[in-house]
Simulated assay, not measured.
Amino acid sequence: MYPRSLLRSATLALAVSLSLGAPSAFALGEAATPASTEAAIQRKVVAQGLYELAYSPKVDVVYVASSGGFGDTASPPQLLLLDPTNLDLEAQIPLERKAFGMVLDDANNRLYLGNTVDTSVTVVDTATHKVLGIVQLMEKKVGKDGKAAYTHDLRELVVDGPANRLYVTGHSGEGSVLFVVDTQSLKVIDTIPGLGNAKAPGLALDAKGKRVYTSNLLAELVVVGTDSGKVEQRFPIGAEQPMNIALDPAGKRLFVTDQGSEMIRKYQASSSGFASKHPGNRVLVLDRATGKELASIPTDAGPLGVLLDAKRKRLYVTNREAGTVTAYNSNTYKPVATYAVPTHPNSLALDATKNVLYVTIKNGDKDAEGSRESVARIAL
């Protein structure tokens, strides 16, 4: 989030701007040859400033957030609706504010878009595809320089549809928080402190267990009780640059990408004095009750997005720096296949019925400023 700034480019799934590394290929049993993986990939250039996306089985459409980019070449922000079979553009919904993060509540016909630079959430009715309103999570404050600005920015969103609750992380090096929104009244009902005096990139929800899991750039896992409205546990973890989190709904595991970016390492040292030394480039598997490390899964360079298909025992990871998406067996942690989708694969969405993965792909430094970015469809 933050246009052109370090954290937006380094810690947010909304925009991480890292260098491109060389793709790699893995095999388990039958080899995943370049031909077999390339044949599975469709890709289409879509719009400027693409970030998170979601697939709706109910509407049978892929939703993609387009911020429009920044600067003189920027386009208006919009929500894009893509045909899930060929990625053709079906519709465009104009937005008042730039959209980055996204979470879909398909059962209740709601899509929530994080307006990072405005510290707000845009709410869309997916039955009518009309914008219902904007939830302002906090107001600007006047700083020492006499200018009014938001003290927190946003990254991830998770929703508990049956409980009518939306949870959004608010980032600040002086104290990250968790915003709690009533999805019926569209009002902020709580702001929970204690996520750590650092950016808090990761967010996952265990609605049944009444727990929200967050990670921060002080190498911590912080657990918030949705029933108590406070931090219940915090654990030091081996992931020094913990990014996105995937939760095993049927077990005790959390999967956390550990990015290993030199850019983030420098930010950590300058902002909090935290010395990040581990090379990262892995996914940590953690016991969510204790924070104990259960496994460390090597990845290609710059892992960020992570998605678990528990039914098929598959874990998918975007490797931003390498320009790849890797599929792992989520029980054995062995790589199954790697898909080359350069330049910077970012966010993931899954059509679990058709076994199709959708990926947003960010441009790199060599792409022309203001050029459109892509979405890939991977038949798994």
Rank of each mutant, 00 (worst) to 15 (best):
S5T: 14
L6A: 15
L7K: 04
T11Q: 11
L14P: 08
L18F: 03
S19M: 14
S19G: 14
L20E: 13
G21L: 03
A27K: 13
A27T: 12
P34F: 04
S36T: 13
A39C: 10
K44E: 08
L50W: 01
L50N: 01
P57K: 11
V59A: 13
Y63W: 05
S67N: 09
G69D: 04
G71C: 04
S75I: 02
L82I: 02
D88W: 06
D88R: 15
L89S: 15
L95S: 03
E96L: 10
E96H: 01
A99P: 11
D106F: 13
N109Q: 10
L111Y: 08
L111M: 09
G114E: 12
N115Q: 12
T116N: 14
T116E: 13
V121I: 15
D125H: 05
L132S: 05
G133V: 14
V135D: 06
K141M: 09
V142T: 15
V142S: 13
G143C: 06
K144E: 15
K147V: 14
T151K: 09
D153S: 10
E156P: 03
D160I: 06
D160L: 04
Y167L: 09
V168R: 14
G175D: 00
L186K: 10
T191A: 12
G196E: 00
G196W: 00
G202T: 13
G202N: 13
L205V: 11
R211G: 04
N216H: 10
L218V: 08
E220A: 14
G225F: 12
V231Q: 10
R234F: 09
E240I: 05
P249F: 01
P249Y: 00
S271K: 14
K277S: 14
L284V: 06
T290Y: 03
K292E: 03
D300Y: 01
G302H: 07
G305A: 13
R314C: 08
L315K: 09
Y316Q: 06
A322N: 05
V325H: 03
T326Q: 05
N329K: 12
T332M: 07
T338M: 01
Y339T: 01
P342G: 14
S347I: 02
K354R: 15
K354W: 02
V356M: 00
L357Q: 02
G364F: 10
G370Y: 01
S371F: 01
E373A: 12
A376L: 09
R377C: 08
I378S: 08
A379Q: 05
